[in-house]
């Protein structure tokens, strides 16, 4: 069970980009900096030329927690909640669930998408390549 994100003007691209299988992160067309969550201007240079850009979908597990508490009835536990540092840029983080297997900080991850209605949730699992 999941509560889905509302598709808001600034964030809808993130939740729907999985429709074609490619993760996208907002990037500045002027200086090339990625930023997440998206803002209406670049936090590095101030340019408004920010737009979703495809990324590799690879990264490393920056940290994780194994949640054991069933916060609402029917919530399947345990599960891993984690934060991924994407390969494109230092400290470019996205939250996720890590699917299957043993987890450790620093492990390589790759994205896949879990489709619900009009949302494609970016999920990550160990990258064995």
């Amino acid at each position: 069970m999941r509560k889905l994100p509302k598709l808001e003007p600034e964030t809808a691209f993130y939740w729907t980009c999985g429709a074609d299988g490619r993760l996208r992160i907002q990037r500045c067309g002027h200086c090339g900096t990625y930023q997440h969550p998206p803002f209406p201007r670049c936090s590095n240079c101030g340019s408004e030329a920010v737009a979703p850009a495809p990324v590799s979908g690879k990264g490393r597990l920056a940290s994780y927690t194994v949640n054991h508490e069933a916060w609402v009835p029917g919530l399947a536990v345990p599960f891993v909640f984690g934060v991924v540092e994407l390969a494109e840029q230092a400290q470019l983080y996205v939250f996720t669930n890590v699917l299957e297997g043993e987890v450790r900080i620093g492990m390589p991850l790759t994205v896949e998408f879990e489709h619900h209605d009009d949302v494609w949730l970016p999920m990550f699992r160990e990258d064995r390549e």
Partner: peptide
Amino acid sequence: AWTVPYNALSPI
């Protein structure tokens, strides 16, 4: 919206 869809339902 960045955390709740992943069932991170508490600040913990």
